[in-house]
Design a protein around this nucleic acid. Structure first.
Lengths: 191, 191
DNA sequence: AACTCTACCTAACGTTTGTTTGGTTAGTTG
DNA sequence: CAACTAACCAAACAAACGTTAGGTAGAGTT
């Protein structure tokens, strides 16, 4: 079992890095491991990225891009309030499970990464959260902003934690998962 | 800013280790950092623990103990269904925020740790999850087990993710947070 | 007073880490 | 064909890593 050459060049390094950062964290991943998966030698990474931190920042960046694109696409997908919410929940889960490990890196590797790298991504993460805040304010005009922020954070927790247990090859589809989360968010389990 | 001698001996090492593992992850934390916070030298750690993995396993172990104790105490605290649920939600949040960084390590450092150490904690983690499964089956006898497991995982995601954003020194108390989470779980936001 | 145990220290070990330097190769452009 | 560039490699660097070995100081026991 040796190096798997998936994609050449810069994107190949990014793919390998994202996968390994998600699995073993920032400090737990070595440049030699990344290079091995990418099918090159460790020193060659520096042709594409200035440092390990720079590489990780690029992974986070691509993860945000995937999320924002998914959100934008979901925006023009539904009309009624519950359907709009479902579409965005489904989009977020899609970013986590259907677009490679880039978005996932924000959940599993972000917290333990060095401060400098985290700060480089904070602005774009905030922007994404604000898109959600705007959406929820639109859908639930009767709930005040402060309480709505709480509900949003709780929802985010549910969504992001799915990567710890959800199995795409199981008998529950992503659509069904999105439906369960949306229903629970809207009506709770007691309904 | 140098070494802070908080508690001597084995427990002092454990405290320091838990704090740093939570902040920087398993691989991102060095034995020299732990020793520095504990007020001793790196080699001395081996008087109390056989290896870094062994030390991390001990942190996880203590984190589980705190959770299970909190759960058991909550068991004899309420009568009505919503109150029982609230008591256990509050207990879980208490384990996360009021008993040192040990339980928190299960959320932030568990995923990226080496497989061998994770496996050493899997049984006890499963046992805790089964306590919750039993509780929910008791509270919601009309919902089938499979669906209830989904709701439980979603709830766990919400609860554990609070460590990413909840600020104990803010104007929202732990009791209030527990109430919001419980209400959202039971009735959703649309109610 | 000799013994034993716990809790540490100093100093080193082999290995691995991120990173740098100086090439080499293949493809493109003038 | 010469010049240039992008994408790599081989080999090394100092620093930091987990870990080990041997020793010391103090308290408790016999």
């Amino acid at each position: 079992m040796r190096a798997k050459t998936e994609q050449p060049g810069r994107q190949g390094v990014l793919d390998a890095a994202a996968e390994l950062f998600v699995a073993h964290g920032y400090a737990g991943t070595t440049l030699r491991q990344i290079a091995d998966v990418a099918g090159i030698k460790a020193g060659s990474i520096y042709h594409h990225f200035a440092s390990k931190q720079d590489l990780f920042a690029a992974v986070l960046e691509q993860g945000i891009v995937v999320m924002v694109e998914a959100f934008d696409e979901a925006n023009s997908a539904a009309v009624t309030a519950p359907d709009r919410l479902f579409a965005h929940v489904r989009a977020h889960l899609g970013a986590l499970f259907e677009n490679g490990p880039f978005t996932t890196a924000h959940v599993t590797a972000f917290h333990n990464a060095p401060v400098e790298v985290r700060e480089s991504a904070v602005d774009r993460r905030d922007a994404y959260e604000n898109m959600w805040a705007g959406l929820l304010a639109d859908l639930f005009p009767r709930i005040n902003v402060k309480e709505l922020a709480l509900h949003r954070l709780i929802l985010f927790g549910s969504l992001n934690s799915t990567i710890e247990w959800f199995d795409r090859s199981g008998n529950l589809s992503l659509d069904q998962l999105a439906q369960v989360v949306t229903d629970q968010f809207l009506h709770g389990v007691a309904s």
